[in-house]
Amino acid sequence: MISRLSIDLQCLSYDLRGFGESQSQTETDVDRGEPTGGLTSHLLDTSSSQFDSLYTPTAYAQDLVALLQELNITSAWLIGHSLGGTIALWAAALMPDRVQGVICINAGGGIYLKEAFEQFRSAGQRFLQVRPRWLSQLPLIDLLFTRASVARPLDRYWARQRVIDFVVADPEAAVGTLLDSTTEEEVNRLPQLVSQLKQPVYFLAGADDKVMEPKYVRHLASFHRLFQYCADNVIEIPDCGHLAMLEQPDAVAGHIRAIVNGQ
């Protein structure tokens, strides 16, 4: 996305704590005792489990707050994929004066399906426990690893990068993020969060996304004022699975540019 958008937009990407090149914990961790501003309702109750863990969407949003403050970025659109979309929504709530709007890619939900989530959490934990370093060296593992998530094969470079990111992720962060982002409390909080955001929020959905189906994207989008009964804030991308920014990069970049530029 950055290679396409940076032609006329200033872009910044970063690794979540515990992933990529970001450490799980550092000596300079920000104090999460109090939110920095924004929503003051029970959604941001600092006595709740939102701030008990380093890996809840709210805690990750606090990391983003600290990053933007450190870089003195006072005006930004936040773009997040899947869980990143949830984190972007929370960050928008925490920083209403800095965040101009949010674009969620393959992100939605807000409906807690007990059996489905329990199976997902259990399978995810088992999957994360088996991550040998040599996994990324297996022939064609990159294509097999992403096959269930996409509607069209990925470019081999990006497919391989996803395998590497998976293998090197901090174990505590990987499991913590999986568990803390899929609790009943966390999932059920999303619709109210979206309904209270004053900034524009748009949702890009993959028409063939089996991980976050378009109907779940539309469900969460419907709680925002821009929905207007006919999903005005939802853009469905044809021939696209759960990795829209890699499967249909030109289409995604085009939609992002149009939204940010107000066209």
Results as ranks from 00 to 15, higher is better:
residue 1 M to H: 01
residue 4 R to D: 11
residue 11 C to R: 15
residue 17 R to C: 00
residue 22 S to H: 02
residue 24 S to G: 13
residue 25 Q to M: 12
residue 26 T to Y: 07
residue 27 E to Q: 13
residue 28 T to L: 14
residue 28 T to H: 13
residue 29 D to P: 04
residue 33 G to D: 06
residue 33 G to L: 08
residue 42 H to M: 08
residue 45 D to M: 04
residue 45 D to E: 10
residue 47 S to Y: 13
residue 48 S to M: 09
residue 48 S to F: 03
residue 48 S to K: 03
residue 55 Y to L: 05
residue 59 A to S: 09
residue 60 Y to P: 09
residue 62 Q to W: 13
residue 65 V to F: 05
residue 67 L to D: 02
residue 70 E to I: 14
residue 70 E to W: 10
residue 74 T to Q: 11
residue 76 A to Y: 01
residue 77 W to T: 07
residue 77 W to G: 08
residue 81 H to N: 08
residue 82 S to Y: 02
residue 84 G to L: 02
residue 86 T to L: 09
residue 86 T to C: 05
residue 92 A to C: 07
residue 98 R to C: 08
residue 101 G to Q: 01
residue 101 G to C: 04
residue 102 V to E: 03
residue 102 V to P: 10
residue 105 I to W: 06
residue 106 N to C: 15
residue 108 G to S: 02
residue 108 G to F: 01
residue 109 G to D: 01
residue 110 G to A: 06
residue 111 I to P: 04
residue 112 Y to S: 07
residue 115 E to T: 11
residue 118 E to N: 12
residue 119 Q to T: 14
residue 119 Q to G: 13
residue 126 R to Y: 07
residue 127 F to T: 15
residue 133 R to A: 14
residue 133 R to E: 13
residue 135 L to C: 05
residue 138 L to S: 00
residue 140 L to C: 11
residue 146 T to M: 06
residue 148 A to Y: 15
residue 152 R to H: 04
residue 152 R to Q: 10
residue 156 R to G: 01
residue 157 Y to E: 15
residue 159 A to S: 05
residue 159 A to K: 02
residue 159 A to P: 02
residue 169 A to K: 08
residue 176 G to Y: 00
residue 176 G to W: 01
residue 178 L to R: 04
residue 181 S to I: 02
residue 182 T to F: 11
residue 183 T to V: 04
residue 185 E to M: 06
residue 185 E to P: 02
residue 185 E to W: 01
residue 187 V to D: 00
residue 189 R to L: 04
residue 189 R to A: 03
residue 189 R to T: 00
residue 189 R to S: 00
residue 191 P to D: 01
residue 196 Q to M: 14
residue 196 Q to P: 11
residue 200 P to C: 08
residue 202 Y to S: 00
residue 203 F to V: 11
residue 208 D to H: 11
residue 208 D to S: 13
residue 209 D to G: 09
residue 211 V to Y: 02
residue 211 V to N: 10
residue 212 M to K: 10
residue 212 M to Q: 14
residue 220 L to S: 04
residue 220 L to V: 05
residue 221 A to S: 02
residue 224 H to Q: 05
residue 227 F to G: 02
residue 230 C to V: 15
residue 231 A to H: 03
residue 234 V to I: 12
residue 236 E to H: 01
residue 238 P to W: 03
residue 244 A to M: 07
residue 245 M to F: 14
residue 247 E to F: 01
residue 249 P to M: 04
residue 249 P to W: 00
residue 249 P to C: 05
residue 254 G to R: 03
residue 254 G to L: 11
residue 256 I to D: 00
residue 258 A to F: 07
residue 260 V to F: 00
residue 261 N to P: 12
residue 262 G to A: 00
residue 263 Q to C: 10
